[in-house]
């Protein structure tokens, strides 16, 4: 931190920062600690059983619950598929738009537009797009591009297609966000680097591999981090489009958490699930820091 202004101002500072600090404490820090504490109990709303300390019993039960394991797996699959796809797509769009010619602003607006759509609305519209039967938009589209060899499906009730359907929805909504961040990263690359590379005889492709990508590295790491964390928080689309089904084919950690805590009133179990979610987020953040730090050491 830089040198602050002169005199010690304990009172003023307390006055200025208290509302935010109290809010963060009351609505983030305390609930978080509470979640950890609850996860070691058997709390269940309306249960006649007395409150008991259960140690890691909830965690043991959660990991032997096939639905939760499936949910965790689904989140992982979501990350493995969506994060690379969405990042590459966002990068391609950003590269296409990172030049000055007529229409780039229009296209940027267009690709960014889904970002301002609430996820619940997006989910509802895509339920319609994934409508079963040959008249469904997605079915018809696939029929068109496969030159008639596509058999219409009921995507959202198909164990193989429910999760991919949600993935596609998420990619449509989220790509614009990443694209804008990457575009900002691209525009921060000094033009002299490209000029120097061109004089050194590097073609477009070489410039991309040797200038653009290395310069964009930290932005890319950040974008991947954010998308990965978002993928583990996936809930709205699942709730609206598939309700986790069919047969847990599209369930997620958050969906299971809400099911446990609300549908079944198992507060302690839900709390334990959110603690697991937090640990995953922590792990991802830690990984990102490590990768980013390595980069700093190199340069």
């Amino acid at each position: 931190m830089r040198q602050p202004l002169l005199d010690s101002r304990n009172f003023t500072a307390a006055f200025m920062s208290a509302p935010a600090l109290v809010g963060l404490l009351l609505f983030v820090a305390v609930p978080f600690l509470f979640a950890v504490a609850l996860s070691f109990t058997n709390l269940r709303l309306g249960s006649p059983l007395p409150l008991e300390w259960m140690g890691f019993e909830q965690y043991r039960r959660i990991f032997s619950d096939p639905s939760f394991v499936r949910a965790l797996l689904n989140n992982l699959v979501f990350v493995v598929v969506v994060v690379p796809l969405q990042t590459v797509l966002a990068l391609v769009l950003a590269l296409l738009l990172n030049r000055r010619f007529y229409g780039t602003t229009w296209f940027r607006t267009l690709f960014f537009m889904p970002v301002v759509f609430p996820l619940s609305l997006v989910a509802v519209v895509w339920v319609l797009i994934f409508a079963p039967g040959p008249n469904g938009m997605m079915n018809a589209f696939l029929d068109l591009v496969s030159l008639g060899s596509w058999t219409p499906r009921d995507f959202l009730h198909d164990p193989y297609f429910a999760l991919p359907a949600i993935m596609l929805t998420s990619i449509w909504q989220g790509t614009g966000f990443q694209m804008v961040i990457l575009l900002a990263g691209l525009q921060a690359v000094p033009a002299e680097l490209y000029e120097a590379a061109a004089i050194d005889g590097a073609g477009r492709r070489q410039q991309f591999w040797h200038i653009t990508l290395p310069q964009l590295r930290n932005t890319l790491i950040f974008v991947v981090l954010v998308t990965t964390i978002l993928a583990f928080r996936l809930f709205d689309q699942v709730q609206i489009m598939t309700q986790g089904g069919p047969y847990d084919a599209s369930t997620t950690v958050m969906f299971e958490t809400v099911e446990a805590a609300f549908a079944r009133q198992q507060v302690a179990r839900g709390a334990a699930m959110t603690v697991i979610l937090f640990l995953v987020v922590l792990l991802i953040t830690w990984l990102q820091r490590r990768v980013a730090r390595q980069e700093r050491e190199v340069t």
Binding site: P4, L5, T12, A13, L21, L24, F32, F235, F278
Partner: peptide, 26 residues
Amino acid sequence: LLWRGRELLFGLVLAVMIIPLEAIAV
């Protein structure tokens, strides 16, 4: 501003930054 506890509390703010709503919803 210069005040007692500034560094510590700012560390806390940075720490809670990574807790998503989903992790504390229940």
